[in-house]
Design a protein around this nucleic acid. Structure first.
Lengths: 218, 218
DNA sequence: GGTAGTAGGCTACTTATGGTAGGTTACTCG
DNA sequence: CGAGTAACCTACCATAAGTAGCCTACTACC
């Protein structure tokens, strides 16, 4: 019967447990997180994910459509978690400079605490393929938006269109600096998050403060 | 004779012109630059490159070994060109702030003038796959090194180990800011390079200047 | 308790493409 | 003018993404 064609008689079918869709999705996402972190995007195969989940490949495709969309989802979830963490810490403070410091520390602590998440985000730079540019950009935009929001709160004004454009550009640039520093950090893990935060504050705060007052009065 | 196996009788072999290795390499690299810029890394196929070059696939593999290495080479070349351009412009000036401005303008002009190169570098973010993390990082490091060198020139001192570590981290962060702003620029191409440079200078110079004096005296 | 309907699952396949084995031909140089 | 080699070819393999088409465990309802 080897090599016979057509619909196959059941062999394994009775062995596995069926799960409700939402549960299966969550399980697959968690396993995918781990797998991508371990092997990177292109190193991870859908077959391996299927095998780890004890499920066949089409199940995964039924849930996520494609490998890219699955990866994008993983990145997005991690990015959201990071943003939430930062947001929460920032809102415990009121003074702008202290807020930036708190947010920075939260940012680096998140990466430190979840090396796995870090890898998924950009440590391995897997997240930065063109196919995920949108997701990578989304993360920077989240940070940028948060900064914009806080700046508006602080200055109590809404900048002009010109000013808003500039602010957006600058907050994205700042987010890029954080991202880049995170990569440097991988080779210098002995530096504590507070140190990184203080370095960045010294570098960026003077310019940021001036920018805020400048655009608030404009 | 359809489907026959074994060594094939010549069919096309006599048609193409043979080129010296170096010339063929250069031709392939240029075509690869264009192809990657058009389709991105994963969208470009070696078969298409071979076909465009009027050559068969093994020729490419003989020259570059693998698709990844070919891509890495393209990225590296473009990065070198960028660095040279920036370096040249910077060295026309002497005042530190003016130098940074000149370098910044050169940086953005390069991207503007060579949209193709931009795409290969990181515009499409293709260059940022894990497999090319090394190349992407190399570009940031080039910019970082240039900054470090210029700072040393300016202050006329060599910082301590501690200071050097911090400086390296900060210059990489700055390079990340440039990179990130470049991505923002893609959606706002009407902003002139000088504007971007001035924005960044206002944001970064106060912190950088202070950093320089601080570490020069330490 | 049986049975229709469906959510959840499976096997086996196709396709696309990176990469290679092994051989042929044009060019160079003694 | 005949080695020897550089440049090149055809035909193939291997891997992994993605799909067609079918099966079956669970639920709801009679």
């Amino acid at each position: 019967m080897i090599g016979m064609r057509g619909p196959t008689p059941p062999v394994n079918a009775h062995r596995r447990k069926r799960l409700p869709r939402a549960v299966r999705s969550e399980q697959l996402l968690k396993l995918a997180d781990r797998l991508f972190a371990e092997r990177g995007f292109h190193g991870a195969s859908m077959d391996e994910l299927a095998s780890r989940a004890g499920v066949s490949k089409p199940v995964i495709y039924d849930h996520f459509g494609s490998k890219e969309r699955l990866f994008a989802l993983c990145v997005r979830r991690t990015g959201e978690a990071l943003a939430e963490q930062v947001d929460a810490e920032v809102r415990k403070e009121t003074d702008p400079r202290t807020r930036l410091r708190a947010g920075s520390i939260a940012y680096f602590r998140f990466l430190q605490g979840q090396l796995q998440a870090w890898a998924v985000l950009f440590a391995e730079e897997e997240a930065r393929d063109a196919r995920f540019a949108a997701e990578a950009a989304r993360i920077r935009h989240r940070q940028s938006e948060l900064m914009l929001e806080l700046m508006a709160e602080t200055t109590g004004t809404t900048p002009s269109h010109q000013g808003r454009e500039r602010l957006e550009a600058m907050t994205l640039a700042v987010a890029g600096a954080y991202e880049s520093l995170s990569l440097w950090w991988r080779e210098h893990p002995e530096v504590p998050p507070e140190q990184l935060a203080d370095w960045l504050l010294d570098l960026l705060w003077p310019g940021l403060e001036q920018l805020m007052t400048q655009l608030a009065s404009a």
